[in-house]
């Protein structure tokens, strides 16, 4: 089973800055990691490879430094990586990113399955996985929490929805986005790290992917960030110390009164 895994490099902290003019993130000076939710996709991919053989290719679209994320995925057990990078991709929204990734994937023959994390923790959209599936006209299943069965033609998987788990039969080739519940990501091994070090990561751009330049980057993106605001983070709440029996009892009384006044619970309480 040949697998493609889509990953994204995200800032390590949630304390990143935005360029107020372009509305895009300033990534300089912030340490970057693999999107934590992509690690689950990587883990599932490696487990499938261990069981059924085949090869795993990790792909990311990002700045040159995103090579590090690909290498880390290789050190966990993926086979090779492709970095889609270049000036022309700068400022791509989820539509333009999905387009570029899909066109790159078209160049890779012989894949059975594409895996992606549920969403990235920085942009938090979850739109690129479904977007790529749509461009490639692949069968899509999102929020996959468990792989139940794999055969030559199908994957049976559970999909985590609001009130439970749907059980889906998905024909291959397909694109699955996975949730945290699906696996527990392994750590890179020493041997994996050595292998990653030696692995050359090819950089793909408009020079080696057939891309319509009008669909790339900021100008190829239907959406525009027009304003960045900073939401109120703190609330001026009442903080009460409850240290002994008396103060605990009194505090609970105040708390109950507080939530009753806000009509958060029924008066009967």
């Amino acid at each position: 089973m040949n697998i493609i895994i889509l990953i994204k490099q995200v800032p390590e902290t949630s304390n990143v800055k935005m360029d107020e003019e372009t509305g895009t993130m300033i990534r300089d000076g912030v340490e970057s990691i693999i999107n934590p939710l992509d690690l689950y996709a990587i883990e599932v991919g490696i487990q499938l490879k261990e069981k059924f053989g085949g090869k795993i290719t990790v792909i990311t679209l990002g700045p040159p430094g995103a090579e590090k994320a690909l290498k880390e995925a290789i050190s966990m057990g993926c086979d090779d990586g492709i970095l889609i990078s270049g000036r022309e991709f700068k400022g791509s929204d989820t539509w333009a990113t999905s387009y570029a990734l899909a066109e790159a994937i078209k160049k890779i023959e012989n894949y059975d399955l594409i895996l992606a994390g549920e969403r990235a923790t920085d942009g938090d959209t979850g739109q690129v996985g479904p977007g790529v599936a749509s461009f490639l006209n692949l069968a899509l299943a999102t929020y996959i929490s468990k792989i139940v069965e794999v055969s030559d033609k199908n994957i049976i998987a559970e999909r985590l929805v609001e009130d439970g788990y749907e059980i889906l039969r998905v024909p291959l080739p397909a694109l699955l986005t996975v949730v945290k519940e699906i696996s527990f990501p392994r750590l890179p091994t020493l041997r994996g790290k050595q292998k990653a070090k030696k692995t050359e990561i090819p950089v793909w751009s408009t020079e080696n992917i057939e891309l319509d330049k009008s669909k790339l980057g900021l100008k190829g993106s239907p959406t525009r960030v027009v304003k960045i605001g900073h939401p109120r983070v703190t609330r001026n709440g009442t903080i009460v110390k409850a240290t002994d029996d008396e103060s605990i009892s009194e505090t609970i009384g105040r708390l109950l009164k507080f939530i009753q006044e806000k009509e958060l619970i029924q008066r009967g309480h």
């Binding site: 800032p11 949630s14 304390n15 990143v16 935005m18 509305g23 993130m25 923790t121 920085d122 942009g123 938090d124 959406t223 525009r224 960030v225 027009v226 304003k227 960045i228 605001g229 900073h230 939401p231 983070v233």
Partner: peptide
């Protein structure tokens, strides 16, 4: 976005 640290307005 970015963990709720910013509010982005998009059109």
């Amino acid at each position: 976005a970015i963990g709720g640290n910013i509010l982005a307005t998009i059109k």
